[in-house]
């Protein structure tokens, strides 16, 4: 039994399998492994990226939290066990590859903004997102302006007017406004092979 589990683990992490299932080629996966090794050994050399190591890699500071980095960590941690393992890292980062389908990027962004994971983006979630954006950007806006931005958002996206944004409405809006998904592409990933020392 142990032998079978080991084989499954090897297969799950195997660069050829990951290459077949993601936008990366095997050489890029090897380069990502170097990056993963660096990130996952920053605080504890255990082959797993903790939230603190993720924040350290992202901000150069393990205490520098943000709603957006928390949400990305939660989505990268697809097994929800509080750490990111290599296969999760590669599979999740694939959506940020320049050649990943726009529909996959839109679906990932929807999950990111659906903070409470209800399957819809609701007014309260949009408000939390705006306030987090203002906080991170060190900007201040009056509550009236924030409410007006929320109204505008729902005018633009909530096409059936039910007060919440579903995946179809989001997909339609993102297709009409591809700049919304700009942050869903990491140009570095196309150059992953040169990241390897």
């Amino acid at each position: 039994m142990g032998c079978i589990c080991t084989k499954q683990q090897l297969k799950y992490d195997d660069p050829a399998v990951l290459a077949a299932e993601t936008c990366f080629n095997e050489a890029e996966i090897e380069a990502l492994h170097e990056l993963f090794r660096k990130l996952s050994s920053a605080l504890k050399d255990d082959g797993l990226i903790s939230k603190e190591e993720f924040q350290l890699g992202l901000f150069r500071n393990s205490k520098n939290q943000s709603l957006f980095s928390d949400r990305i960590f939660q989505l990268l941690d697809s097994k929800h066990d509080g750490v990111i393992e290599f296969a999760e890292f590669v599979r999740s980062l694939s959506v940020f590859h320049p050649e990943a389908p726009q529909s996959d990027k839109a679906a990932f962004a929807f999950k990111l903004y659906d903070i409470w994971e209800t399957g819809f983006i609701e007014r309260d979630e949009v408000k939390v997102l705006i306030l987090a954006f203002l906080d991170e950007s060190e900007l201040m806006l009056s509550d009236d302006i924030v409410e007006a931005i929320i109204d505008k958002t729902f005018e633009d996206v909530d096409s059936n007017g039910d007060g919440k944004i579903d995946q179809e409405e989001w997909k339609e809006f993102a297709t009409r406004n591809p700049s919304l998904l700009k942050n869903m592409t990491i140009p570095y990933l196309k150059l992953a092979t040169v990241l390897s020392p």
Partner: peptide, 28 residues
């Protein structure tokens, strides 16, 4: 027709910001 043509919507605001920028992970 839109009632607030001069306002930006929340997703455009966040999409243009660096809030979701993951490039820090790749910089040495």
């Amino acid at each position: 027709s839109p009632k607030s043509p001069n306002l930006i919507n929340a997703f455009q605001l966040i999409g243009m910001s660096s809030c979701l920028d993951l490039s820090g992970l790749f910089e040495k």
